[in-house]
Design a protein around this nucleic acid. Sequence first.
DNA 1: GTCTATACTTGGATAGAC
DNA 2: GTCTATCCAAGTATAGAC
Lengths: 217, 217
Amino acid sequence: MAKSGSASKVKASGGARSEVTRQHLVDAAIATLQDRGFAGTSARAIAERAGSNQGLIFYHFGSVANLLLAALDAVSHSRLEQYGTSVAGTSSLTELVDAATDIFQTDLDAGYLTVLVEMIAGASSSPGLGPEVAARIGPWQEFAQTAVESSLRDSPLAALLPAKDVAYAVVALYLGLEMLSHLDGDRGPALDLFAHARLLAQLIERMTATTTAEETT
Amino acid sequence: MAKSGSASKVKASGGARSEVTRQHLVDAAIATLQDRGFAGTSARAIAERAGSNQGLIFYHFGSVANLLLAALDAVSHSRLEQYGTSVAGTSSLTELVDAATDIFQTDLDAGYLTVLVEMIAGASSSPGLGPEVAARIGPWQEFAQTAVESSLRDSPLAALLPAKDVAYAVVALYLGLEMLSHLDGDRGPALDLFAHARLLAQLIERMTATTTAEETT
DNA sequence: GTCTATACTTGGATAGAC
DNA sequence: GTCTATCCAAGTATAGAC
């Protein structure tokens, strides 16, 4: 349905030029959420960073809220994709914790989690934003659940701790650690925690091995 | 009793009338943070709820940010006091989890944690707000650390998990659970988690008892 | 179709009324 | 000392220019 040469993309505003502008605005929205927070991410603040006129936000996205959701989409997709490849290479609980540590460090340093936290906390400020944000956080919980399931599959803990509940806690912890680390400007305590989680993972694996050995005896 | 002579009090403490107005504004700020979020908590929104003129906020508190900090102070003090009495009555890990469950449920239903989350997330929007908020979250971590220490004192887990790190995680988890529950409008998953934590606490206590018995044999 | 200039609303803060 | 009327900056959104 490409009309003329310039209109090959799917969006209502379909030109290549439009796509570039949209991308600039999304990038600027992410950056602004990261260092000004939700309340500081106004159309003017975003546009200034993008080097665009603020009116473009309403032309391309209809509202600031829609642009912010597009920004959340971009971060969410890009991170979940990365998570998938990182976790695919793990086969034990300890390796999963190692992968999670790397992921968390990157998320923290690059401010990806900040975008999530600001959007979740900011959702209550804007009518109708809540469900939209929730729909974009859902995949994070699904991903966490899958990762937890495959790592606890052979563990006796699986009976005691449903993967869904553990995944919910993992995502909550992730968000909470971002909040505290960001607030203090110190990622040290959070990383210490991952180090301890690794030790705990090793302990659990040893216990599991022992249990299995006893059962097969 | 409207005015006893010409009021002789200074601005900050003021007369009884001033104190009433301040309290109304603090209460309204808390309520507004809870259902409009940080970004929606403007001087006008607060004043409307308090039944006051918005200029009063600047007269009594100097700025909206200062009023919000006073609101955070009020919530923080009142909750930590409650936590203290609740946890004082516990002597085992299981009882601690029970107390935490009650506390969490109240926090969630009454929106106390919402105030914390909104202030933490909103802190990045306002220059200089971060350290002020951090100073008011610190006591929460100290409280959590004390509670964790007294409950893990006799446990072999204490060597593996420093109370400070566990407390950091507990506070982070608390905040994260509030965010997710609030976003979904469903506290069910979070409460399920507490139920599982209780089972885990019982398991740990049984393991600890066994270990102790073996050691004394 | 894409973008800019402009309209109108809301927000923070204060000068001045009581 | 306490509160209100008013000011101006910043916000969203659109009408109209290119």
